[in-house]
Structures are given as structure tokens and as C-alpha cells.
């Protein structure tokens, strides 16, 4: 059990690292587009890299963060039927979810890998004076697919809730604003709180309901 837990800890750290990259990408999108606006209006010399890089950045900002929030049980889901099931069936439903997610992760990893191979073999590249080789987005998807498959196995639904319930007083939903590294959210001056509430709400259809 402790071997499993340390494996989980390690995998979660990897997933978090990718999510942090995703966050950095959003920040860079903001900065590079602002830079492009400035040089466009002030110098009439827009960059040719802002457009393709930010389009590629969007894919990275999304797909790299997906495994981490899956491991934390924070994607949008509907627990309308699930919460009405007897606990045995509920566990079966969770197994189906884990299997479906594993399947998605594997399909993503395999197909993105093949697509990456096609792109490398064919030397495929985007159009334009600044072009990104087409294997790059495929590599991002491949990474996300592999990690999604791993977290699907290691963090079946309920894992995050169990952990969260142990960490939070009963009745409080786990929050997104939670500190990276798993500490309970202490950074909650009243002004900071709204954003946390919002973050938790996105996947929280289930959360509020289960606990009501």
C-alpha cells in the first residue's frame, strides 16, 4: 500500500509539473500577444511567430493540465444517477470510468505517437514564414495521453475525494485553489476566496450535491 502511495505521489508530481507548464503557457500567451499588439501598432511590424506559437500554446495549455485535474477528481461530471446508486454499483460505475479513461489515454498515446511518426517521416511542417513542425503538437498529445492512462489506473474516481475528505473538515468541498503539493488551502484571505470557490465549482456538480 505504501509503495502504491509513493508511486501515486510521484505520478501526481509529474502531472503537477505538466500542469505548471500549462499555467506558464497561459501567462506567456498573455505576454506575447500584448507584445505583438505593441509592435503592430507602434512600429507597424507585427511578429510572424505570435500567431502560430499561441495557437500551439492553446493545445499545450489544455492538454498538459488535463491529467493533473483528472487525478484530483476535478473535471466536470454529472453525479445525478451515480449518487442514487447503491454503493456496490457506485464502485462498478467508478471502475467503468477508470476503464474509459484508461482507454482514452491509450488511444491518445498510440494515435498521437503514430501521427508523430508520420509527421517526422514526412517532414511535415506548418505553413508560413514561421512554421512549427507538425510532430510538436502530436508529441504534446502523446505525453498527455500516456499520463492520462497512468492516472486513470492510479487515481480511480473517489481517490481524490478520500484524500480530500481526510484533509478538509466535513462538508467542505475540495478546492482547486489548493496549494500545489497537496497542502490544504490555507491561502484564503476573504478576498482570495471567491476565485477558489469558482475553481471548485467547475467540476463540482457532483461535489455540492453528494454532500447535500
Amino acid at each position: 500500500m505504501s509503495a502504491l502511495n509513493s508511486l501515486r505521489k510521484y505520478v501526481l508530481a509529474c502531472a503537477l509539473a505538466l500542469a505548471v507548464v500549462a499555467m506558464a503557457v497561459v501567462g506567456l500567451m498573455m505576454l506575447t500577444i500584448t507584445y505583438d499588439v505593441i509592435v503592430r501598432y507602434a512600429l507597424a511590424a507585427p511578429t510572424d511567430w505570435a500567431y502560430p506559437l499561441n495557437a500551439a500554446g492553446l493545445l499545450a495549455a489544455t492538454s498538459l493540465a488535463v491529467p493533473y485535474f483528472y487525478a484530483k477528481g476535478q473535471h466536470i461530471s454529472m453525479d445525478l444517477v451515480h449518487r442514487a446508486l447503491p454503493s456496490g454499483l457506485r464502485r462498478a460505475a467508478d471502475l467503468v470510468t477508470a476503464a474509459a479513461t484508461l482507454f482514452l489515454g491509450l488511444v491518445l498515446a498510440v494515435t498521437a505517437f503514430r501521427s508523430m511518426a508520420v509527421a517526422i517521416k514526412g517532414g511535415l511542417t506548418g505553413a508560413g514564414t514561421f512554421s512549427i513542425p507538425l510532430w510538436v503538437p502530436d508529441a504534446v498529445l502523446f505525453t498527455s495521453g500516456v499520463l492520462l492512462a497512468v492516472v486513470a489506473v492510479l487515481f480511480p474516481p473517489g481517490t481524490a475525494e478520500d484524500v480530500a475528505e481526510a484533509e478538509h473538515p466535513p462538508g467542505e468541498a475540495p478546492s482547486t485553489g489548493e496549494a500545489p503539493g497537496d497542502a490544504p488551502a490555507t491561502a484564503a484571505p476573504s478576498e482570495g476566496a471567491p476565485a477558489r470557490g469558482e475553481g471548485r465549482a467547475a467540476p463540482g456538480t457532483g461535489e455540492g450535491e453528494t454532500r447535500s
Partner: peptide, 27 residues
């Protein structure tokens, strides 16, 4: 004057979370 480290972290974690939850659905 509300941009301490804690709030910065909150902002980026929430943004990554909402972005990933919604754009994962988009894809």
C-alpha cells in the same frame, strides 16, 4: 494591492483548472 504569492497561485491554478476542464470538453 492584492497580488501576493498566494493570490497569484490561486489565479493561475484556477485559470489552468477552468481552461483545462472546458477546453478538454471542447476537444
Amino acid at each position: 494591492r492584492k497580488l501576493g504569492w498566494a493570490n497569484l497561485r490561486t489565479v493561475f491554478v484556477s485559470t489552468a483548472h477552468v481552461t483545462a476542464s472546458i477546453l478538454a470538453i471542447v476537444g
